[in-house]
Design a protein around this nucleic acid. Structure first.
Length: 290
DNA sequence: AACTCGAACAACCGCCTAACT
DNA sequence: GAGTTAGGCGGTTGTTCGAGT
């Protein structure tokens, strides 16, 4: 795939965690120009990263529409079912989990679901992976703890004088994805460490912000595209948090709506399959975003 | 309080495939 | 057709953090 526009300077590429500045540069560049050639992106965006690294960062963390945080029960079931069916075809599996990336699915499997399945199979040698999907699984307790921790934390009711209290409460301003990301006890480390509260909390009401998608005012173009009359989805209860994202985030419902379902953009929730189609059409128009 | 251990996750690495020269 | 390169995918590693002792 030779790319005529690609330059190949022998640079000492930076490695390791991405800084907010790098994220910003990459995001700004791609939202503005797209990524016709990944190896050219870091050069043109002024980043000392290689193209692969940029691609990964964009796909896994910066791309609009990504869902972060706890996997719902249904998502777990999908992963386990499809893993049993297809093996470790993470990208393929991720296609059936709107807003999830292959990396995220893979990590989730390796750190949690695999053990769960093994454990279930161990206790029931004749049981299949899918039979292990009982709702009374031990490790969900961990997630529940996390949620409880968050629900009792200052996030919900920041002190009046808090510097983060410069607008509506966090809960009401965060979209479900970032909200769930937040309750997962950590903003992704990379942002938890680097972002000030102001980075996390967008000042604009109704903005789609959060640890994983720290939109800022520079993204007004895409923000506008993604959020026409954005309908906010705010978890109303613990069960909302745990079982999905309000009413919109479950595969079963997606299926029920006939697949692949095009999520309304305003809900900040995308079916990757649909995104692919969008992407294709954008590609054809040379307005690559994804 | 200090230490250890395991979980979680971001990111890198290596391989494969497809497109280009 | 062979060589080269970019993109994509899956495996693995490194780092951080919380829980337990």
């Amino acid at each position: 795939m030779g790319c005529g526009t690609c330059e190949k300077p022998k640079v000492n590429y930076r490695k390791g965690l991405w800084s907010p500045e790098e994220d910003q540069k990459l995001r700004d560049y791609i939202l503005k120009h797209g990524h016709s050639c990944w190896s050219a992106v870091p050069v043109k965006a002024g980043l000392q990263r290689n193209g692969k690294s940029c691609r990964l960062r964009w796909i896994n963390y910066l791309k609009p529409g990504l869902k972060r945080g706890i996997f719902s029960q249904e998502e777990e079931e999908i992963i386990m079912n499809l893993q049993a069916k297809w093996g470790n075809k993470w990208s393929r599996i991720a296609m059936h989990l709107p807003g999830r990336t292959d990396n995220e699915v893979k990590n989730y499997w390796n750190s949690y679901l695999k053990k769960k399945v093994i454990k279930a199979q161990g206790s029931d040698p004749h049981g299949s992976a899918t039979q292990s999907l009982d709702s009374t699984n031990q490790s969900l307790v961990t997630h529940e703890k996390t949620i409880n921790k968050f629900l009792s934390s200052e996030f919900l009711e920041p002190p009046e004088s808090s510097t983060r209290d410069s607008g509506p409460s966090m809960v009401h301003r965060m979209e479900f994805g970032s909200f769930k990301g937040a309750i997962q006890q950590h903003f992704p480390k990379v942002f938890a460490d680097w972002l000030s509260v102001d980075h996390v909390i967008d000042q604009r009401p109704g903005s789609f912000v959060g640890a994983s998608t720290p939109w800022n005012s520079n993204n007004s173009n895409i923000d506008e595209v993604l959020r026409p009359g954005s309908s906010q989805v705010v978890p109303q209860s613990k069960s909302d948090l745990h079982s999905g994202y309000g009413d919109t985030g479950t595969y079963g419902e997606l299926q029920a709506q006939s697949e692949p379902v095009s999520q309304t953009i305003g809900d900040e929730f995308f079916d990757l399959l649909s995104l692919g189609e969008i992407s294709d059409s954008l590609d054809m128009n040379h307005d690559v975003l994804f």
